Computed example of a mutant assay.
Amino acid sequence: MANKPMTKTQLVAALAEEMGTDKKAATGALDAIVGIITREVSAGGAVTLPGVGKIYCRERPEREVRNPATGETFTKEADKVVKMTIAKALKDSVNADA
């Protein structure tokens, strides 16, 4: 059975322990990283987290979609979607534990 996702509080505690610092500094570091990623991806760029993956924004064209409840088709406007490509090192480490 899968474990629950790590919460921000748990992530901050683990980060503080790994860095050998207090939780306030770890929270600041995490918030700074999230801010940088958000700003860069929102501007159309990409961010590579070594050993984790690449986060980027992709534009989707206008397209025909169907409402599954009613069967009605309609045109959905073009939009942007955030994607992440997982690094091979992370995939390999996950599969090595299997």
Rank of each mutant, 00 (worst) to 15 (best):
D79V: 07
A32E: 02
A89S: 13
A26I: 03
K80C: 11
T73F: 08
A87Y: 01
I86K: 04
A89N: 08
V47E: 00
K23T: 09
K91T: 00
A69W: 06
G20S: 03
V41L: 05
M1F: 10
V47F: 07
S42V: 14
A96K: 10
E64S: 11
D31A: 09
S42L: 14
T27I: 01
L90C: 08
A14F: 15
K83T: 09
M19D: 09
E18R: 15
T7Y: 11
A89C: 08
R63V: 02
V41H: 04
A78T: 07
D92R: 02
N67G: 04
T73Y: 04
K24I: 02
E40A: 12
T73R: 02
A87V: 02
E17D: 14
T75G: 08
V52W: 12
V47A: 04
K91M: 02
T85Q: 08
R66T: 12
I55V: 09
A46C: 10
T9V: 15
M19F: 13
E18S: 15
T70C: 06
E59Q: 15
P5N: 00
G35I: 02
T21P: 08
T70G: 07
A25H: 12
C57E: 15
P68I: 00
T21M: 06
A13S: 14
A43E: 08
K54L: 07
K91A: 01
T7S: 09
K8Q: 10
T85S: 11
G53E: 00
M84C: 12
A46K: 14
E17G: 14
T38V: 13
D22W: 07
K23G: 06
G44V: 06
D22E: 05
D22I: 10
M6R: 13
S42K: 15
A32W: 05
A13K: 14
L49F: 11
E59V: 15
R60L: 14
A26S: 04
G28V: 00
A78F: 12
P68A: 00
V12M: 02
R66N: 06
T27Y: 10
I36M: 06
R60Q: 12
A26Q: 01
D22L: 05
M1T: 13
A46L: 09
C57K: 15
G51T: 02
R63Y: 04
T70V: 07
N95K: 05
E62S: 13
E77K: 15
V81F: 11
V41R: 02
R39K: 13
P5L: 00
G71C: 03
M84H: 09
V94A: 04
A89M: 09
P61G: 12
A89W: 09
E77L: 13
K4H: 14
A2G: 14
S93K: 11
N67C: 05
K23E: 06
V52F: 15
E18D: 14
A25D: 10
A26N: 03
A69Y: 09
Q10P: 12
L15Y: 07
K80G: 08
E40Y: 11
M6E: 11
